[in-house]
Design a protein around this nucleic acid. Structure first.
Lengths: 247, 247
DNA sequence: ATCGGGCTTTGATCGCCATCAAGATTGCAT
DNA sequence: ATGCAATCTTGATGGCGATCAAAGCCCGAT
């Protein structure tokens, strides 16, 4: 009986901000941390910070202070050119780290905008850096996460450089599907948080092409589209489309 | 007189491998290192390793052990898809680090191939990692270098996603020009180490388009092309081409 | 409930770049 | 020097996706 009440011993604040209690821990942090190390990390990471849909977490040019982990919600990052054109450089869901581009120039080089009401954890970089000198696993973790970002970017380059519109869209849908699955959501049907234009920007296509291609996939029985709700009907078919180009 | 002979006190081996004597030091290493720290770094970095033109420094799938700094020469890195198509992910010249993609999966994800007779320095990663725990500037340096790679990749994504063929080629030439200049070579005329096909792969274009565009630039008086020798004739004109899209 | 604006779909046309093809040039090996 | 393979140039044609255009839909604000 009393066990059910134990959470009372922990303040609400602690509950919200403790990485040790967070279901995303294995996405954000190395899993080799012992209790003491975890406590040190917990102390550094700020209160969860809410960002409303449409708001920017940070903008290009702002001074760099922290990396951000998505706790809840969905973000896009993008570079905006002088003439106003936008290149979306990534979509980011829970457990993913944003802001690593800012380390080199000491200011953010992208805008990070919430595509739904979201919440992020702040990782003050200097403090994390010095803590990671004491915790090898943490240091290695940051190297790994940055490396993974580089690999991901190479994948996008391959997509933009070699693939046709249909292949790009198929790869995009499969990628989203997989990432939802990892987080325990349905991999077979999901809600797109972004507009056709944002998808197009990410994939190097115009919004009309995105729309047309989704319609075509629906006609072919590969997916079902209802505005932003996507249902995958023939995953193998989609994979074949991608493989025809990229393997 | 005798001063001219002082190098004799240093063995040839030391001369070749000492970062402290290397003219590329400010490209490869943080400049805050003191003599003692520099010595520790020197001890880790292997003998310069020659790679003949056409040879691979490493290939996708090989286990990860070290990062490599280009000491002399020119490399391309590329991903090859199952059906044999190649996406060049970067060209790398002296002072630049390769292999950071391999940290996350513990094996290389690209091929790195020398485009001319080259020489690289080997940076055993685990040792560098543990040394960087003792030298904050070194740790920060690796984070910065990886961050810079991410920023660079975002630039390529913008190029592939938004720019037309002429804009891509102009941006490419200006980028090469700038990097040669930093290294003390002429920024106005240089030798392309890669084929039209490799340029095209990097820029998401076919080799014929690369060739045609270079010819067109020559007709417009923007550049002079003689096979792989490029002379920039109107840098501002090239910049205007790029800016018309990207700012 | 109704209105309005942003988002999406679909159609028609156009232009850029891929593709196919044939020579020209380079440079390497003998 | 000679010959061959790889690379590069240039031309002709075609298709994919951009662009222009208009109508429909969804959702949030009042």
């Amino acid at each position: 009986m009393q066990t059910a009440l134990q959470p009372r011993d922990i303040t609400f604040k602690q509950l919200r901000q403790a990485c040790s209690n967070c279901s995303l821990r294995e996405l954000c942090l190395p899993n080799e941390l012992n209790a003491e190390e975890m406590k040190q990390v917990d102390e550094l990471i700020g209160q969860g910070k809410p960002i409303k849909r449409g708001e920017a977490l940070y903008r290009a040019g702002e001074p760099f202070r922290a990396l951000y982990a998505v706790r809840v919600g969905f973000f896009k990052t993008s570079v905006v050119s002088e003439d106003g054109r936008e290149q979306v450089t990534g979509f980011h869901m829970s457990g993913e780290l944003m802001g690593m581009d800012a380390i080199s120039a000491d200011h953010y080089t992208c805008d990070a905008v919430a595509l739904e009401d979201s919440e992020v954890c702040e990782l003050p970089f200097e403090e994390m850096e010095s803590l990671s000198r004491k915790i090898p696993a943490l240091q290695h973790h940051f190297y790994r996460v940055m490396s993974r970002e580089i690999v991901r970017d190479h994948g996008v380059m391959l997509l933009l450089g070699n693939m046709k519109a249909e292949e790009r869209i198929a790869a995009f849908l499969l990628n989203l599907s997989q990432r939802f699955q990892i987080r325990g959501y349905s991999s077979m049907s999901f809600h797109l948080r972004m507009t056709r234009e944002e998808i197009g920007s990410y994939l190097g296509l115009k919004l009309e092409t995105v729309s047309r291609t989704l319609s075509k996939f629906q006609d072919q029985g590969l997916i079902k589209v209802q505005n932003r709700l996507i249902e995958l009907r023939d995953v193998d078919g989609l994979k074949q489309l991608v493989n025809s180009c990229q393997g």
